[in-house]
Design a protein around this nucleic acid. Sequence first.
DNA 1: ACTACATTTCGATCATTCTGGAAATATCGA
DNA 2: TCGATATTTCCAGAATGATCGAAATGTAGT
Lengths: 120, 120
Amino acid sequence: MDTTAALAALGALAQDHRLAVFRLLVQKGPEGLPAGAIADATAMPASSLSFHLAHLQRAGLIVQRRVGRSLVYSADFAAMSAVVGYLTENCCASATCVPAACVPAACAPASPIQTRRKSA
Amino acid sequence: MDTTAALAALGALAQDHRLAVFRLLVQKGPEGLPAGAIADATAMPASSLSFHLAHLQRAGLIVQRRVGRSLVYSADFAAMSAVVGYLTENCCASATCVPAACVPAACAPASPIQTRRKSA
DNA sequence: ACTACATTTCGATCATTCTGGAAATATCGA
DNA sequence: TCGATATTTCCAGAATGATCGAAATGTAGT
């Protein structure tokens, strides 16, 4: 993950509503949640939610798929892992920090369905 | 680290100049760098830099100390570690994610001087 | 084709953040 | 105390971001 992508991801998460939405989607795992259900859970108006979902998606943190007439969103765990990787790689002066084993693909969902995006 | 603090940290890092400054300070380790040197390295006007340094400091990511007539800034590795901890704890549905050994105090500087702040 | 439903896009408004010059503050050495 | 250096605070303007109702789009069932 390059700095531009990291910046986009950090910017997307640095907002209370978006962080709440993302955490909710992470909880729900690869199955995700339709926009309506997210709106209910977070008690925000549809248009505002849509704005934030688009922001998270632009940043590559969530993924959208259509199911019937609903748009179902789910967290992109590989992208999140890349963000954590970027931060760990850039938060320490040298290699003395995190055991290397922790960095690659650190964020995997409980079940193995995986959204299969470019692993950054 | 609670969500409010994480939000502040993410917000502080989600800006190109601030991310650059923070990465520079992380590289420099606990010794840090005076504001003037940071201004030189990043080629930004003093007042703008001061604004961003204050932002990073409010978020708890960097620490300031006076050395002569310089104000020396250094990364707070414990705080950064807390941010990574928050993200890893909140990026996975269950405990299947990062081996627990990686989370606590993950971000330590090469030398053991440690800025000694509340560990978030 | 029509109606209902789920969600997005548009547009206007309000709030926040970024920027950088000029003035103020703090420290040091003589 | 004075002048030089280092940095911050103040200020105003420009840019970006957030909010949410209303209208538009897309999908499904009949």
